[in-house]
């Protein structure tokens, strides 16, 4: 769906994006994670042909960008750095103009398309108020409706849940999951770890313009080979497991062991009471912290 090779963008002496090799498969829910200023937005803009790369190649939907970007974009829905709308017009008028501005689709079913898109993002009951009077969340939903207008095969969304309340975030997440199940590939960028973790199947991590990590979320969060055991009989358990216990913290033991079920059976057989047992997984946060160096907006003394 999206492949980039050695993609680099420099502004003067600043390198915003540095040798990025993105690989998004069809059907992915791909989350591009990175702190502010790590080059996510520049990368997204290059994928859409808004910003021209200094070096490297981009392929979206199998076609080279920006050379064939005109053939690519009709199948792409995008939201880049917040929604954009004419403030003096209503949301519906904005979508109608947006729909009419580009190629494809007849004038006759324009109304139906606009209504459908508004309905999908939860703005079906929208009135004639101008966008100027919208809340940030409503504008965000309108931007998403604009992206969905053409039933795209690929959605490229930059910070799609910005400005939404928790319920709104949940709704958008469900909507994106639903679209993804229907065959739309979703590529989104965010600096919010929890959002990516809750939605995505594949994760890329940007740090200072570099793609430092790219893998399936399941792989990243694979069991670490340790088991967390909760037991009131800590001393007996430690004695029994003899040296395999790495840490004991209150009623929780961290045990080096490949199989939680086998460990549980072993403990119970020895008469140790077990209140909880689970394979230890790395949190996405830990993965990201390991992969990145320092916060991008931190300015250290020389």
């Amino acid at each position: 769906m999206i492949v980039t090779r050695g993609l680099t963008k420099t502004y003067g002496r600043v390198t915003a994006v540095d040798g990025v090799g993105l690989d998004v498969h069809a059907g992915d829910r791909y989350g591009l994670l990175g702190p502010n200023g790590s080059g996510k937005t520049t990368l997204v803009r290059m994928l859409l042909g808004l910003v021209f790369a200094t070096r490297g190649e981009i392929e979206v939907l199998g076609l080279p960008v920006p050379r064939r970007v005109r053939d690519v974009l009709p199948s792409v829905g995008a939201m880049v750095e917040g929604p954009g709308a004419y403030p003096h017009l209503s949301g519906r008028a904005n979508l109608t103009l947006f729909d009419a501005a580009g190629p494809g689709g007849g004038r006759r079913d324009r109304r139906r398309r606009v209504d459908e898109a508004l309905d999908r993002v939860g703005l079906a009951g929208i009135d004639r108020r101008p966008v100027r009077a919208y809340s940030l969340g409503m504008r965000q939903r309108l931007g998403l409706a604009a992206a969905l207008l053409r039933r795209p095969r690929l959605l490229i969304l930059d910070e799609p849940t910005n400005g939404l309340d928790p319920r709104g975030i949940r709704e958008i997440r469900d909507l994106l999951t639903e679209l993804n199940t229907d065959g739309t590939t979703v590529f989104l960028s965010s600096h919010l770890l929890g959002e990516i973790e809750a939605l995505c199947t594949r994760v890329g991590v940007m740090d200072r313009g570099r793609l430092v990590l790219q893998d399936d979320l399941a792989t990243l969060r694979a069991p670490t080979g340790r088991v967390l055991v909760g037991t009131p009989d800590t001393d007996r358990a430690v004695a029994l497991l003899d040296g395999r216990v790495e840490r004991s913290d209150g009623g929780t033991l961290t045990v080096r062991h490949p199989d939680p079920a086998a460990l549980n059976a072993e403990l119970v057989a020895a008469g140790v009471r077990v209140s909880a047992v689970a394979a230890e997984r790395r949190s996405l946060e830990q993965v990201v912290l390991d992969a990145t160096t320092t916060s991008a907006d931190r300015v250290e003394a020389a």
Partner: peptide, 14 residues
């Protein structure tokens, strides 16, 4: 500055 230029261009409008 209204943020609509990028959306027109990705619509796409040449």
């Amino acid at each position: 500055s209204a943020g609509t230029l990028r959306y027109l261009l990705v619509r796409p409008v040449g």
